[in-house]
Amino acid sequence: MNPKVIVGSIIVIVFIIFGSYSFLESNVEYTDVSGAMRSQKKVQLKGSWNRDKEASFDPRTSQFTFYLIDESGKECKVVLEGAAPNNFEMATSVVAKGRFLEEGYFHATEVLTKCPSKYEADPEDVKRKV
């Protein structure tokens, strides 16, 4: 066999293995509150924030705390490193990236917000007079 082909194939295989390994390693699963509590790994916790409870930023620790409710209605305290994300107040659902700590709260490094309602208009909006 042509040595070029062999060298080429080895390089390709190495890259495929390297790619798949990195992919699986950094793949972050979407889960709900009970799933996050079970998992030891970094997960993405999906839900909406509980507007009845306080969501506040503590300048001393630079952490933002809020309460998240998942689809099954289970609630969980989320502590985010940093301030509330830009669209937090209008978010219909949020995704918190991080892991559940033994101290009993979800420690998030990042919170993404989804705000579809504002982008998808409804006829009531049209009729509203400004």
Binding site: F18, G19, F23, E25, S26, N27, V28, E29, Y30, K97
Partner: peptide, 14 residues
Amino acid sequence: GKTTAVDISYYVTT
């Protein structure tokens, strides 16, 4: 059968 996304670190490592 479940949607997940890669962490940003994936792009840096690769």
